[in-house]
Nucleic acid binder design. Structure first.
Lengths: 150, 150
DNA sequence: GTAGTCTCTCTAGTCACTAGAGGTTCAAGG
DNA sequence: CCTTGAACCTCTAGTGACTAGAGAGACTAC
């Protein structure tokens, strides 16, 4: 089992530059190299990259993943911190949902208040954004846009 | 009414460097300057910054906000694009909520499957992340972490 | 006049990649 | 054995929306 970086990418669904990026960030160890200096991976790296991919899909930061990997490499330690990290992530996700729901309500009100066939001077969307008083509730300091995988 | 950048920041809740950043991005016009080259703002800028702040709170990108401002400056145009932008944002928010809910379910299952008092080798959190087969549903390509205001 | 706060510009850092330049290596076909 | 073309290498820079800090100048209250 000697995989090139492209093989590894194909098997895990992680793009080639991203694998190199993970290596530079210390999430993957520097692998063996071929005679011509190309990376060669084995089963261990395949599994580790799968772990990282899975954790990223669940929204864990690379920092949190590094901590989880550290723990994985020391099976004798207590798993308290893994649980704490997962619960922290769960809390963060729930908080995001809460904020996005408030946003959704306000945006729906604003977007549906405008038929789109008038002039900009009478636009309810623009008026709502210009005047916070028009809002049904206080949604200041709500969620901001997020980065997402395609 | 001649506000310094600090006064403007205090009145709108937008931080001073962020105001300068908005100016550099073209969302705010370059204001008048004092004899000593310091920015001086009036009511128009206060309102515009309030508009931007409000739209950012609702998750609009700076690009979308620029388009909305452009429309605001031309009250004779049709407000079709404002409605489209708002509805696009609403759709994006709804999609994020949908993804985050799938994530929440999976994270809750993982986090609550572990008491946190065992050793890392038996940790359900780590096992779940290592093996996608353990997942209750397919949540690959879900939401990634988002940027949010404090 | 002076102390202390505010403001100026500029650069660099954040996160998690992504894109591109310019060059080298590998594997398959002839 | 040789060629071709895909895959690989390193390095730098760009994304969005800021945030932090340096070093210098301006303003305000006493």
């Amino acid at each position: 089992m000697f995989l090139s970086i492209g093989d590894l990418a194909a098997r895990t669904g992680v793009k080639v530059p991203t694998i190199r990026y993970y290596e530079s960030r210390g999430l993957l160890e520097a692998p063996l190299r071929s005679a011509g200096n190309q990376r060669r991976y084995g089963r261990a790296e395949l599994e580790r990259l799968g772990f990282i991919r899975h954790a990223r899909d669940l929204g864990f930061s690379l920092e949190a993943i590094a901590a989880l990997i550290e723990l994985q490499d020391h099976p004798d330690r207590a798993c308290t911190s893994a649980t704490r990290i997962a619960q922290g992530q769960l809390g963060a996700v729930r908080e995001k949902i809460r904020r996005l729901r408030a946003l959704e309500a306000e945006l729906a009100r604003i977007a549906e208040g405008c038929t789109g066939d008038g002039a900009a001077r009478d636009c309810y969307v623009l008026a709502s954004l210009a005047d916070h008083e028009l809002c049904a509730r206080d949604h200041s300091i709500e969620a901001r846009s997020s980065t997402q995988r395609s």
